[in-house]
């Protein structure tokens, strides 16, 4: 039997635009990555969601979070 440990419903990583970086005080369970522009933000979020097998969610204030469901 494969025992797989994972954190669910927890913010695994946060990707913010530079101008929104002051909106995030602490990164929750994961680190905060600052992206130069929205293109880079999308790319970082895509990579992180693939790596963590999480889903990227948009808080609509320049902050994207990756959550494992």
């Amino acid at each position: 039997m494969i025992i797989k440990t994972s954190l669910g419903k927890i913010v695994l990583a946060t990707v913010v635009l530079a101008e929104a970086s002051q909106l995030v005080v602490s990164g929750g369970a994961g680190p905060v990555y600052v992206a130069r522009d929205s293109q880079e933000q999308q790319r970082l979020a895509k990579y992180l969601s693939k790596i963590t097998e999480g889903v990227a969610h948009d808080l609509e204030n320049g902050v994207l979070i990756i959550v494992r469901h």
Partner: peptide, 20 residues
């Protein structure tokens, strides 16, 4: 509607990736 996906008026989830 923004990042939120709907079927008719039923809300499903928030999607952050443009590709998705």
């Amino acid at each position: 509607q923004g990042p939120n996906v709907f079927v008719d008026d039923i809300h499903f989830m928030n999607l952050g990736l443009e590709e998705a």
